[in-house]
């Protein structure tokens, strides 16, 4: 790319935080408190020239297995196994295109894909800059295929699977995992904090609970085109 401006030269800076129920009790309040805290630190982040695109904010919290079990049952009519991990994925194209490759990698790691859920979002919330580069967002529900469950093995296999799937394109702009874990999940995007709840419909559901939530809001653009 000609010129002196290099897109890769961005830097992270922002505000951050964590809301946690010390006793590990899950509630929707932990999520809403986190979102409110993010919103009240909006002045720490930057606003792009379209007035709407932030430089990225997100939420990381412990997976509410019941919530996703219900969602998948209701939306896809699939019953998830008792133990599952969630891979929250940004992908520029249709996931069906790379499904065979993903399945092969999962099989090698003794994992299997139970369901793919298109994460419900409201795109018209986004500013033009974010909209121009917004990917498709999927949740992959992955379970161990071994008969006897071993938590350590499951975690190892998940890590390895993720690394190999990322290597399919080796380019964050095409394929990027926000999270890939049996324990935690990340919802993030190029938007101002006050829009994250509007954008991700899951976050509005009172049934979605968490006991700990971690949140960054960033200043510099990561994927500005």
């Amino acid at each position: 790319m000609p010129g002196l401006y290099k897109k890769e030269d961005f830097k992270d800076n922002c505000g951050f935080g964590l809301v946690s129920n010390i006793d590990g009790i899950k509630s929707h309040k932990v999520i809403t408190n986190s979102i409110n805290a993010l919103i009240s630190m909006t002045h720490r982040g930057g606003v792009g020239s379209d007035g709407k695109t932030g430089d990225g904010c997100g939420l990381l919290f412990d997976i509410d297995h019941d919530y996703f079990r219900n969602a998948v049952s209701k939306e896809l009519d699939i019953k998830l196994p008792e133990i599952f991990a969630v891979g929250q994925l940004f992908y520029n194209n249709k996931i069906e295109d790379i499904l065979p490759e993903i399945n092969k990698i999962l099989k090698n790691e003794k994992l299997s894909l139970s369901a793919i859920r298109k994460v419900p979002v409201k795109k018209n919330i986004l500013g033009k800059i974010a909209l121009d580069c917004s990917p498709n967002i999927y949740q992959l529900f992955i379970s161990p295929s071994e008969k006897v469950f071993n938590e350590q093995n499951f975690d190892t296999n998940l890590l390895q699977a993720r690394k190999f799937i990322e290597e399919i394109f080796f380019d964050d702009e095409i394929l990027y995992f926000c999270s890939f874990s049996s324990k935690t999940i990340v919802y993030k995007g190029l938007m101002l904090p006050n829009a994250i709840k509007e954008f991700y419909l899951d976050l509005q559901h009172k049934d979605l609970t968490a006991s700990s939530c971690v949140f960054p809001s960033k200043v510099f653009n990561q994927h500005e085109s």
């Binding site: 935080g17 805290a37 009240s40």
Partner: peptide, 17 residues
């Protein structure tokens, strides 16, 4: 800050919640 409902809020600023 830790409140009486046993919720801890850690952040770059105080008063976010």
């Amino acid at each position: 800050q830790i409140d009486d409902k046993n919720i801890i809020t850690i952040a770059s600023e105080t008063g976010v919640n």
